[in-house]
Amino acid sequence: MSKLTNQLTLPQTKGSRRNAPLRKMARHWQLYLVILLPLAYLIIFKYIPMAGIVIAFKDYNVVKGIFGSEWVGFKYFNQFFESPSFWVYMKNTLGISLYGLLIGFPAPIILALALNEIRNGLFKKSVQLVSYAPYFISTVVMVSILIVNLTPNVGIISKLFHMLGVENTNFMGMPSLFKSIYVWSDVWQHTGYGAIIYIAALAGVNPELYEAAKVDGASRIQKILNVDIPSLIPVSVILLILNTGNLMKLGFEKIYLMQNPLNLATSEVISTYVYKVGLLGSSFSFSAAIGVFNSVINLILLILVNYIARRLSSNSLW
């Protein structure tokens, strides 16, 4: 529609449409000049690496280079699938991701609903200010905060747990606790910031709906269930799709920093394994194969979830 009107208002030159694209391009040659540099960036740092995944199907050798190395087909993929650690890493990756999604996805919605209930004032402002803040802490500092706070007998969290009767242990070294520490510290860091978008969505709800609910004698809980939550569904479906598309992309940074020799059984995930095998161990092809596998699974997940969402709720990315 908008394209149509645009065509009409454009000062069309002499009717002929033969060289329309070329003429348009010539008219805006400066824009093409401007866009060259960022396009070069995209090609060099995004598309060449995409083409570089061929090394996953080759026996990459530094001397021979990417093109000189021999094709080996799916050798490295099979090597990965057949190794006993494959299932361990898959289990750890998906386990942490799904646990994170289960807790981390509703958390900002609950915070936003609670904040939406109270009127604007100092208390509301301080809760917002304080809860957004951890978002700006770097991963390195975040993990340090965890380590320091969980130090047995020293850190405040371990002392609080001790008061509740939990035995003082090396929390960071317990394989069984790794997932929980990862997920709940993520909730601590990202819930406030994640709530912003939902708070905005709630602010956009038509006030007449609240009036009507009040006239009908709805309690606050009924109002939340029947007005607030339905109005958050479009945003949350989109965010859920995006999150699901990242299930396998589980953040390397934080997990790598949280790893220690004691918790490796549950903390080794695909992205940290790719880094260790590929860059520290220099098995470029093997590790690239794992990376490709990871990207493909992610893409499939994204398409699948988007498809389901479009079927069920008519909200989807495309």
Binding site: K46, I48, M50, L299
Partner: peptide, 13 residues
């Protein structure tokens, strides 16, 4: 945004 080369090709570039 949907697909990427992964760590190793990125490093090699």
């Amino acid at each position: 945004m949907m697909f990427e080369g992964g760590l190793i090709p990125y490093y090699l570039v």
